[in-house]
Design a protein around this nucleic acid. Structure first.
Lengths: 251, 251
DNA sequence: ATAATAGTGTCTGTAAGACATTATATA
DNA sequence: TATATAATGTCTTACAGACACTATTAT
């Protein structure tokens, strides 16, 4: 905030990149586009775009999200992940990218964006095995860990569920995002006891067996007590918390 | 990443702002500078500066941190907090700021930076009551919550302690950052049982009473089980997790 | 001895994991 | 009826909060 302007660079732009997650068919999926122009033409990438003049970062992210999902934005969970600013991350020049994480209920179908590119839902395993443009593989990785962490400490999992939803719907979200099977009985106990996580609508959904009670999202944003994953065998290692985004918290 | 360049703005710069925390005399303190030039001349602000050409965001933050604290950087805990990009946040024009959070052991004394400004340690309560330049009050607030959350889920608290340190030293850090008294007995049990949080050096420190065993930081980055604050009365409300940085996580 | 600080042990309540059991629907 | 899914209950273990008690130093 107080350096001589001689060190300021000339060509610089700021973009937002979106990691849009959804859960469909019990699988965590991410929205990928196929780039229609260079650089990385024809390669898969995260959706995104430049921040416009006079526009908030959050607004730019919401705008891009609406363009890609064609869903009324205010419904969707959207939060900033972090900034990526390696000087070499974009061959066209210096582009700082602010990554956002969006959690969406199962959306109709892959939607074509306004730009000349094809959009598709990719399973998280497929996406991780795909070579992505720019540093999007790293962004996706950070976003995935952020999402997994969010499910532990916040009520964000419900953002994946279209209302009304059942406890089983919610559990399938956890299982898809964490990639773990959960005990249905213990899961029910935890989510129903957590204050203001979910609220019964009074309705029921009929499939085949016993009808399931329906719920809507409650007002709580944080889960107390948190709904932790397995006793942290995967997390107590020597990872860097600043890089492995908020495994407990951040963004 | 794929918008027509007509919407790109002309004058744009990227800065880093640092929230440098330390614990001295049992109090959480933050490094503030007094601005030597407009805008906000004479007002308190967070230290920071423009990102230089060809420079990584992390590098810019480390550079500023070294300038302000005159301490060999690699020692200090430094992590990105998030980006702030309100178009009106800087009256000079569009400046995107990437905020960083630094956790430092008690440093010698307020150090003057390379720029023409005075630096000082401010108690967190004083700082919160001070009118800060730009949107630095919001950044400080987010950083404080991030730091508090980090102490729950990571071993970051040890970054506040110069090695070797005692369990009491570590407890005083938690008490200062959380602003809560902790039970010494239960605290000791938790930190000594948490895997690889702290390791005994074998040495002892003599003051007056019984000599205290000395410890160094262990290799673990995450605390399992986490060391949670009170049963979340302050957190289970209706806050926005994306704004109130990672109370659980994320950030 | 007394004061001061460090460290251990015990009791109790909460919550999680494992898993048996009951409830209510469809075919 | 058999089958499938939803929901409740029980047992055990782990851990946190509260707090009594012991240990080791300086004065």
């Amino acid at each position: 905030m107080a350096t001589n302007s001689t060190t300021r660079h000339a060509a610089l732009s700021v973009a937002v990149d979106l990691v849009i997650f959804t859960v469909r068919d019990g699988t965590l999926q991410v929205l990928l586009i196929e780039r229609g122009k260079d650089p990385f033409r024809g390669m898969s990438a995260l959706p995104g775009g430049y921040v416009r003049e006079g526009e908030t970062l959050d607004h730019a992210a919401r705008r891009e999200l609406a363009e890609e999902t064609s869903v009324s934005s205010p419904q969707l969970h959207l939060e900033q992940l972090r900034a990526y600013g390696d000087p070499a991350r974009d061959p066209r020049g210096r582009v700082i990218s602010i990554a956002y994480l969006a959690l969406c209920p199962g959306l109709p179908e892959p939607v074509a964006g306004t730009d000349a590119h094809a959009a598709r839902w990719a399973g998280i395993h497929d996406a991780a095995a795909t070579t992505l443009a720019f540093d999007h593989a790293a962004i996706l990785n950070d976003a995935l860990e952020q999402a997994r962490s969010r499910l532990e400490y916040t009520t964000g999992a419900a953002a994946f569920c279209a209302e009304p939803f059942t406890v089983t719907d919610l559990r399938l979200v956890y299982e898809a995002v964490w990639g773990l099977p959960l005990d249905p009985s213990n899961f029910r106990r935890k989510v129903t006891r957590a204050a203001s996580f979910i609220e019964p609508t009074g309705g029921r959904r009929l499939h085949f067996g016993r009808p399931a009670a329906l719920y809507r999202r409650g007002p709580a944003q944080f889960l107390s007590p948190p709904l932790l994953r397995a006793p942290d065998i995967t997390r107590s290692g020597s990872d860097d918390p600043a890089t492995a985004q908020n495994r407990p918290a951040s963004g």
